[in-house]
Nucleic acid binder design. Structure first.
Length: 722
DNA sequence: TTATAATTACTTTTT
DNA sequence: GTAATTATAA
């Protein structure tokens, strides 16, 4: 370990780096040099004789993993250490120990869309009404169960009330469907591995022996499955280092359990805890508001952010008329910064929901400000991309029926719904997968001769494509494009088809890049990797473009100039995340994460009116704005305000004047817009679906939380808005 | 079977 | 307001 490097660290950082054996908890505030500590720790371990091969570092995203690999390599700790996400690690383990886990290694990973198809099928198979048991709700519940490591069988044993028993049926059937198709969803990856480690001492022993030093970053956002998995891996040697910040836990809705980090010392009694409270990133002005904000959370351990930087930055609040004006103000301010030679890559705009990027993009285009929307998975959600990938998935995993059904008539080759249904029935009857059924199409009953020919032809196409599956992926994708007829079908369809082909070209480029970077490229590995891509993975840090992203995607990043827009009640905090106190605290942490990404200046804004689901509505300023303690700030900043005309200071004592509504405002809004939450004396809470404005005879259709939908006469219903 | 029209559901964050 | 599913006609 480089002495000079060690000398640069603070004493607590050094303590964390040099504590090599046994459990270690690093409670690291934002901007405390946590990443540096982890990479130095890896280097120090290797330096003291630990083989890189025995080190396993777990990060939150693939992007973070890649960065850590590079940083470690820069410290001379190159190669050999396993650095990846929990999910990627699980894929590797499941491929290696497929048999022990009771599966085949060429499994498909099902994303939200695939899951939705399967759960719909499951609901149908259980003969349930899709309206009373919405697939999305079922899927959510199943995911929660899996994150708690409750499998279908043990849930069945404990399901008592009607809803649970129904859910249990769907869960069981859903798992069957996945198993038949050799498919796993995201939660399965974790659950399977956790169970495997806990039940198979041979496998667990082998892996614990391989990964003798475990480092887990962003520990505050691990869920119960990840917690159990990590514990099982580290149990024998106790070399587990967890780093994180309870104040930055923002994935509770996804099963993250903040108690994992809070109880680390109980789980590992010999644990050494190191606190990193100094902040090297942000100016004092930013840390003051961040501190003031997060102090409002009741359920937290007291911690202060200690500023190391001595220069003053600026926090400002702009109040705009509507979202277009807000976007315009942001674009103008960014443009001004670019004029002051600030690199565009040092500017970021954060928002609560993805849909808010649209207004920003329009404004940025208008002002000719270079930008990138950090939304990597969007590309993989395009129809044509999903089509090509579905072909590849069927090739790698013939049992993957979701993928097969997607491509069987894409492009249209005369295989319609009826034919597909018959083929499915035939497969079920003979205990075959759909893929296998196609190879003996001529035996399928009730299908016309012409249809049989088409099915056989399709089966032969797959067979032909499958003949040469080994090796690089890009040539394979090209063959699929040409031989499936996709290319041909896009060629006659004008601009749209042209765009689609270009996108597919991009996909092939990406595959070629994978082929080059990977020692032993294989279709299976490629598919399993891209299934785990995240939005942040698409972020190009070196880019000369301003970054636009959600607050969630902002985790782990930092910029000189940070904009957080839409500081309105119901948006940030989001209305669906302000139910109970815990949810509100998570929204506050989310905003805290956004605020603490800023190095020098922070620009906050909100719009008095915002179009929400097509409705132009008056907004209310976010309560979080009042929690920043800006009173003080306004006084501090007042003298040097001159060059800052675009951003007016927010004053708590002086409520914003109510301006007349802009001309663009729509005529009077209906009393109850669809989507409005309402309360009824007997039916309780519900959401308005339809509102027929007929004066005194207006009819409101409300879906109540009990599941039933009622049409009520407004004058008698006595509904109150919530 | 396929293309178009009509209806209906879904609108938070994501590995 | 949009996307996706479903009904209908060609």
């Amino acid at each position: 370990m480089d002495e000079a490097l060690l000398a640069q660290l603070t004493s607590s950082q050094r303590k964390a780096v040099l504590h090599k054996e046994g459990p270690l908890l690093v409670l690291a505030g934002p901007g405390s040099g946590k990443t540096r500590v982890i990479t130095c720790r890896i280097a120090a371990l290797i330096d003291s004789g630990v083989r890189p091969y025995n080190i396993c570092a777990i990060t939150f995203t693939n992007k973070a993993a890649e960065e850590m690999r590079q940083r470690a390599a820069a410290l001379g700790a190159s190669g050999g250490a396993h650095i990846s996400t929990f999910h990627s690690l699980c894929v590797r383990i499941l491929r290696r120990y497929a048999q022990a886990a009771g599966m085949r290694p060429n499994f498909s990973i099902y994303d939200a869309a695939d899951q939705s198809k399967c759960v719909k099928q499951a609901v149908k198979d259980c003969r349930l009404d899709g309206t009373n048991f919405p697939p999305a709700r079922m899927l959510d519940a199943i995911s929660t169960l899996k994150n708690k490591l409750i499998d279908a069988q043990s849930f069945q044993e404990r399901a008592e009330d009607f809803f649970s028993r129904t859910l249990s049926q769907v869960y069981t059937r859903y798992q069957q469907i996945l198993a038949e198709q050799n498919g796993l969803d995201f939660d399965d990856l974790l659950m399977k591995v956790a169970f495997l480690l806990e039940s198979d001492s041979t496998v667990c022993g082998e892996l614990a022996n391989r990964f003798r030093f475990l480092l887990i970053d962003e520990y505050q956002d691990t869920n119960h499955a990840q917690y159990r998995l990590a514990k099982a891996l580290a149990l024998s040697h106790g070399n587990i280092c967890a780093t994180g910040d309870p104040d930055q836990s923002i994935y509770r809705w996804r099963g993250a359990d903040i108690r994992n980090i809070l109880a680390f010392e109980k789980d590992w009694p010999q644990a050494v805890t190191v606190k990193l409270e100094e902040n090297f990133r942000s100016t004092a002005a930013i840390l003051r508001v961040a501190d003031s904000l997060i102090a409002r959370n009741k359920n937290r351990k007291q911690k202060t952010l200690v500023a190391v930087r001595t220069d003053e930055g600026r926090v400002s609040v702009e109040i705009c008329d509507d979202e277009a004006a807000e976007a315009d103000a942001v674009a103008r301010q960014v443009d001004a910064l670019l004029g002051q030679n600030v690199p565009a890559g040092q500017i970021a705009v954060f928002y609560r929901v993805n849909s808010m990027s649209r207004a920003l993009e329009e404004a940025f285009v208008r002002h000719r400000v270079p930008y990138q929307v950090v939304r990597g998975v969007e590309f993989y959600n395009r129809k044509e991309i999903r089509d090509v990938l579905a072909y590849l998935k069927v090739l790698a995993n013939p049992a993957d029926e979701v993928a097969l059904l997607r491509v069987i008539n894409t492009p249209a080759r005369g295989i319609g719904k009826v034919t597909v249904d018959r083929a499915k029935a035939f497969a079920v009857e003979h205990g075959l997968t759909l893929s296998e059924a196609l190879t003996q199409a001529d035996r399928i009953g009730g299908v016309s001769g012409a249809a049989k020919t088409k099915l056989s032809a399709f089966a032969r196409l797959l067979d032909k494509l499958r003949q040469d599956l080994v090796g690089p992926v890009a040539p394979l994708a090209e063959r699929v494009l040409a031989e499936s007829g996709l290319e041909q079908s896009f060629k006659g369809t004008g601009q749209e088809g042209q765009d689609a082909l270009e996108n597919i070209g991009e996909l092939i480029n990406a595959a070629a890049a994978y082929d080059q970077q990977t020692a032993e490229p294989s279709l299976l590995d490629y598919l399993q990797q891209i299934a785990l891509f995240s939005d942040t993975d698409a972020y190009e840090a070196t880019s000369e473009r301003a970054a636009l992203m959600t607050l969630h995607a902002a985790k782990g990043l930092e910029f000189d100039h940070v904009f957080v827009i839409g500081l309105e009640d119901g948006l940030l905090p989001h209305e669906r995340g302000s139910g109970d106190g815990d949810e509100l605290e998570e929204e506050r942490r989310l905003f805290f994460v956004g605020v603490t990404r800023a190095r020098t200046n922070l620009y906050l804004s909100y719009a008095r009116y915002r179009t929400v689901r097509g409705q132009f509505l008056r907004t209310v300023a976010s309560p979080f704005l009042f929690e920043l303690g800006l009173d003080q700030m306004v006084q501090d900043d007042e003298e040097s305000e001159d060059d800052f005309d675009a951003f007016t200071e927010y004053r708590r004592t002086q409520p914003s004047p109510v301006r007349p509504r802009p001309a663009a405002a729509k005529p009077a809004e209906p009393l109850f817009a669809p989507g409005q939450l309402v309360r009824h004396k007997t039916f309780g809470l519900g959401r308005v679906q339809k509102f027929a404005d007929l004066g005194a005879n207006s009819v409101v259709t409300v879906q109540f939380n009990t599941g039933q939908t009622k049409s009520l006469l407004l004058q008698y219903a006595n509904l109150s808005k919530v």
